[in-house]
Amino acid sequence: MPNNIATVLSRQDTWRGRSQRLPRRTITTGHNNLDLLLQGGWPISVLTELMPQQSGIGELSLLLPTIKYYADNNQLCVWLDPPYQPYAPRLAAADIALDKLLVVRSKNHAEWLWAAEQSIRSGALLLAWTKQPPPRYADLRKLQLAAADNGNAAFLFSAPSAMSAPSPAALRLELQSLEINQLLLNVRKQRGVAGGAQLQLSLGEANTQRTNLALLPADRHRTYPVRQFNN
């Protein structure tokens, strides 16, 4: 619990009357257009919920730059209950240090929630896949609060059926595949912005381009070190 004014003020979700825009700390997604859409990149210290319409459409490739960023910073990346086994040669080809990845299998919902919260609180990047039945609102709220306390990005992969359910996640993206390597992002919820924005994103090995940081709004990355991704 925050016990003094300094801790309260250092939190990102404290609203202070005079500031026009909340100071947002983000890390770049590695895609120009997505950075612009998300106002700088993946928001950190919030829970981000990704809802791919089915697995295999490129939802994980979207996060590879972020995973690499964390691994390069010597931080652990916890994969909680992934649907399949991560394929090491592909990850190694993306220059991700494999010893920074940790695959965790939980046996029940209590363990899932505990492991997720521990990972967020220990400064690791969390990628969590929900199981059936989907976690309750109160449980997700716990994760959102842990992320807010700790200043780390946390990603939750939910089933498309979760779309209709309310979620405490500050950013909710629906992912659809248009054709091969073409991903359609539907912003379902974004803090501070009205939802409903759409973005078509090209993924894939052949047509990945370098992120041009000069195109980004200058003040987005002020408080967080920025790295370039040469993916």
């Binding site: 086994q85 090491a88 494999l98 940790l102 965790v104 299998r105 939980s106």
Partner: peptide, 10 residues
């Protein structure tokens, strides 16, 4: 908490 079998690394 989860036991050694729960954790793995690729």
């Amino acid at each position: 908490r989860l036991g050694i079998d729960a954790l793995s690394q690729p």
